Amino acid sequence: MPATGYLKKLTRRLTEDLGNADAEQIAEESRATGAQRASDCCRGDEVTMHGELRAVETCSRTAKAGVKAEFFDGSDTVLLKWLGRNRIPGIEPGRKLTVRGRLAEGDTGKVIYNPYYELYGAEDE
């Protein structure tokens, strides 16, 4: 009987949507670190989350200077905004990190302004 369970799991992994598989893997890593899930957090909460940067954008216009990054923890997306910065070394798509800060609600959803962060490299995973 154990082979049947293994075959079901293998078949599911081979036929599963890659986005879902990626989200599941990131969510597992997040649970392993003891971090909070973004989907469970509300505006005003002090949060610590672990996940991956999906996209990074720099805005160099004087009024809106800063770095914006789309952070995904396997359950929800949170926008990270560092104000007054043109570039932050290491903040790039695909990097895994742990962020800490107060969750706010922006025009497009959840946002953390000027979060504390800890980057992880390939050797840390």
Rank of each mutant, 00 (worst) to 15 (best):
D40G: 03
T62C: 00
K64F: 14
A35I: 04
E28K: 07
R43N: 15
R61L: 09
T48L: 11
G34W: 06
S60F: 12
R61K: 10
H50V: 12
H50F: 15
E24C: 12
H50L: 10
E28V: 09
C42W: 05
A63S: 14
K64C: 09
S39D: 07
R37Q: 14
D40Y: 05
K64S: 11
E57Y: 12
A63V: 04
M49N: 01
E52I: 14
C42L: 14
S39K: 15
V47S: 05
T48Y: 05
V56D: 00
A23D: 08
C42Y: 08
S60I: 11
R61Q: 07
A23K: 06
Q25K: 13
V47Y: 01
Q25H: 12
V67H: 04
E52N: 12
E24K: 14
E46V: 12
L53P: 04
A27P: 03
I26C: 09
R31E: 08
Q36H: 07
A32S: 09
G66P: 00
T62D: 07
C42M: 12
Q36I: 05
H50E: 02
H50W: 11
V67Q: 02
D40K: 13
V67S: 01
A63M: 05
I26S: 10
T48Q: 15
E29H: 07
E24P: 06
K64Q: 08
T62Q: 09
R54W: 05
Q25Y: 12
E29T: 08
T48P: 02
D45Y: 02
A27G: 08
A55H: 13
A32T: 10
A65Q: 12
A23R: 10
V47P: 03
L53T: 02
V47C: 09
E52C: 15
E29C: 09
G44H: 08
A65S: 06
Q25I: 09
E28A: 15
A63P: 02
T62G: 03
S30I: 02
E57N: 14
C59S: 15
R37A: 15
E29L: 14
C42E: 14
D40P: 02
L53Q: 06
E46Q: 15
E29V: 06
Q36R: 11
E46Y: 11
V56P: 00
Q36T: 07
S60Q: 11
M49T: 03
G34A: 05
A32W: 03
A23E: 04
M49D: 02
S60C: 13
V67E: 01
Q36Y: 01
H50M: 10
G51K: 06
G51P: 01
E46L: 14
E46M: 13
I26E: 08
E52P: 00
T58S: 01
K64P: 00
R37Y: 09
V47Q: 02
A23N: 07
C59P: 01
C41N: 03
R31S: 10
E28Q: 11
T33Q: 05
E24V: 13
G51L: 09
T33F: 06
S30K: 01
A32Y: 03
L53A: 08
A23I: 01
G66Q: 01
G66K: 00
M49R: 02
T33H: 08
V47I: 15
T58K: 01
K64D: 04
S30Y: 00
A35T: 03
V47T: 06
A38T: 07
R61F: 07
K64A: 10
